Computed example of a mutant assay.
Amino acid sequence: MTTIADFSARLPNGTEVNLADKLGKVLLVVNTASKCGFTPQYDGLEALWRKYGERGFEVIAFPCNQFGAQEPGSADEIDQFCKVNFGLSFPLMAKVEVNGPGEIPLYTWLKDEAPGLFGTRKIKWNFTKFLIGRDGKVVRRYAPTAKPAAIAADIEALL
C-alpha cells in the first residue's frame, strides 16, 4: 500500500526531501498562497507547529500559484513574506502545482486517498489540508475554510 513514504518533495533551493523520513510523525500537508483571503491561516498553522512540533507533528506547506495567481512570488519572496508577516518557522517547500498535468505525484496520491466533497478529486482552492497519520496514511482532508485551530483535536488524537 502506498504511503507518504513513497514520495519526495523539493525545498525552494532544489534539495530533495525524502518523505519516508517523516514516517512516525503526524503531518499536515497544505497548499498555500501569500495573496489569498485564507493567507491569515499561516498564523494558525504556525500555532499548531509550535504547540505540537515537539510531540512529532509537522506542517508541510507547498506554495501554489494555481488559484487566482495568488502566489506569484519567487521562493525568496514567499519565504520573506511568511517570516515577516507570520513569523513562520516551519519550512516551506518549493512552489508546486496541485491540479492538472503538472501536479506533483504527492498531490495525485493525496487526492486519490481523500477526495473532496461529493467525491471530487480536484483541489478547489488554496489552504486545502491533508492530515497524515504516523503510519504515513491519509487520515482526512479539510476544506480551505477549515481553520487550523479546528484541526487541533484530530492532531491530538493522532499524537
Rank of each mutant, 00 (worst) to 15 (best):
L48C: 11
A47W: 02
C64D: 09
K83T: 12
Q70T: 04
R50Q: 15
G24N: 09
W49V: 01
F62M: 05
L92G: 07
K83P: 15
V59D: 07
L19S: 10
L88Q: 14
E46F: 05
C82G: 09
I60Y: 13
N18S: 14
G53H: 01
R55N: 08
A47M: 07
Q70H: 03
G24R: 04
G24A: 01
E58Q: 15
V26N: 06
D21T: 14
K25M: 12
G68A: 08
Q66G: 02
Y52I: 00
W49M: 04
L28F: 07
K83S: 10
L88P: 02
C64R: 07
I78G: 06
N18D: 15
E46V: 04
K35T: 00
C64Y: 09
F81I: 05
Y52L: 00
F90N: 08
L19D: 10
A75E: 13
V59S: 06
G37E: 01
D76N: 11
G56C: 06
S74K: 06
A47G: 11
E77S: 12
E77D: 14
D76Q: 13
A33G: 10
K25I: 00
G68I: 00
C64E: 11
E58P: 01
A47D: 14
G53P: 00
G73E: 05
T32R: 05
S89E: 14
D21H: 13
P91N: 07
G24H: 08
E46A: 07
R50A: 15
D79K: 09
P72R: 13
E46Y: 09
L28I: 03
F81C: 03
F81A: 04
V29F: 12
R50G: 10
V30W: 00
E77I: 02
G53E: 01
E77W: 08
D76F: 02
Y52C: 00
E71G: 11
F38Q: 12
G73V: 09
C36V: 02
G56D: 12
N31E: 11
D43L: 06
Q41M: 08
C82S: 10
R55T: 07
G73W: 07
P72H: 11
L48D: 08
C36W: 08
Q66C: 06
K83R: 15
S34T: 15
N85P: 01
P63N: 04
F86T: 10
G87P: 03
F90P: 10
K22D: 14
V84N: 14
V59L: 03
L92N: 05
E71L: 06
C82I: 02
F62L: 01
N65Q: 02
L48H: 09
E58K: 09
F81T: 05
S74V: 06
D43E: 15
T32M: 11
K83A: 11
T39A: 10
Y52N: 01
